[in-house]
Simulated scan of single mutants.
Amino acid sequence: MGYYAPDNHLCDCGHCGQRLTGRQERYCSAACRQAAYRGSKQPKRLEFKPCPLCGEPFHVTSKRKKFCDYHDEAEDDCRAAQDDLDDAAWLAAEERRTALCVHCGQPAGWSGRGRPRRFCSNHCKQADYRKRRAQRAA
């Protein structure tokens, strides 16, 4: 009556490689079992992964890194593509900062998080709703 299936038994410890004795099926001790479990739960780190812009493999130093290193490994095309992405992000942020109210055209304001506001105040929001409702009724 074992915990593991009969075809899954090992002769040596699955973690440290020590010879198993007695009723031991896979690990020589609880410490080895726990160490193997902890090791299996840790994410596997990639040494290299392909850059989505140029397709060339680059060295991964953190899990948030997406593109080639700008100064070391990136080629001219990839550097230009990274610059274009940075410019697009800057333009999108600038559009959010300078968003205008749909109803009156005044600056709507932006808190710095999320989508830009469509209206500068609740008054404009309500007035725009009433205007659209009147247009649908007509």
Rank of each mutant, 00 (worst) to 15 (best):
D12I: 10
C78M: 06
D86E: 15
P50I: 00
R23E: 08
A134F: 14
D86A: 13
D69F: 06
Q34V: 11
E95F: 11
L46F: 09
K41A: 09
N122K: 04
C11T: 15
G55M: 03
H103G: 02
D128S: 08
D72L: 09
C124E: 05
G2K: 13
P6Q: 12
A88R: 06
Y27P: 00
Q135H: 13
R132L: 11
E95K: 15
A74E: 02
A99C: 08
E94Y: 04
K49T: 08
A5H: 14
A35E: 07
G22H: 04
T21G: 00
A30V: 03
P57W: 03
S62K: 13
G17A: 05
A89G: 00
K41P: 03
D128R: 10
K66C: 09
K44T: 11
Q126N: 08
R45H: 13
E56D: 10
F119H: 12
R136V: 02
D77K: 07
M1N: 05
Q24Y: 02
L10D: 03
H9Q: 12
G112C: 04
Q82P: 02
R115V: 12
Q135F: 12
R26A: 01
Y129K: 13
K63T: 13
L20T: 09
P50D: 13
P57Y: 09
C54V: 08
D87S: 01
F67K: 02
D128K: 06
R45W: 07
C120S: 05
Q24V: 03
Q82E: 10
D84S: 13
G39V: 07
A81L: 05
Q24A: 11
C78A: 09
G55I: 06
H103V: 00
H71A: 06
D7P: 01
P107M: 05
G112I: 07
C11N: 15
R23F: 08
E75Q: 08
C68Q: 01
A35V: 01
C11K: 15
S29M: 10
D83G: 02
A35M: 08
S40D: 01
V60M: 04
A81W: 00
Y37R: 15
G17L: 03
W110E: 00
C54R: 02
C13N: 02
E73K: 05
K63A: 11
L85P: 02
R26T: 03
A134P: 04
R133H: 15
A31I: 14
D83M: 09
A31Y: 04
D12K: 13
G112Y: 10
C13M: 04
D12M: 12
L91R: 04
Q106A: 14
Y4S: 05
P52N: 06
M1D: 14
Y70N: 03
D12E: 14
S121D: 15
E25F: 03
M1P: 07
P107W: 07
P52W: 05
G109W: 08
K66M: 14
Q18M: 12
R133D: 12
K41R: 15
E73D: 10
N8G: 01
A137H: 13
A80Q: 14
K65Y: 01
G114C: 07
T61H: 15
G55E: 07
R33C: 09
L91Y: 00
K41I: 01
D12P: 00
Q135E: 15
V60N: 01
D76R: 11
G14F: 05
Y3T: 07
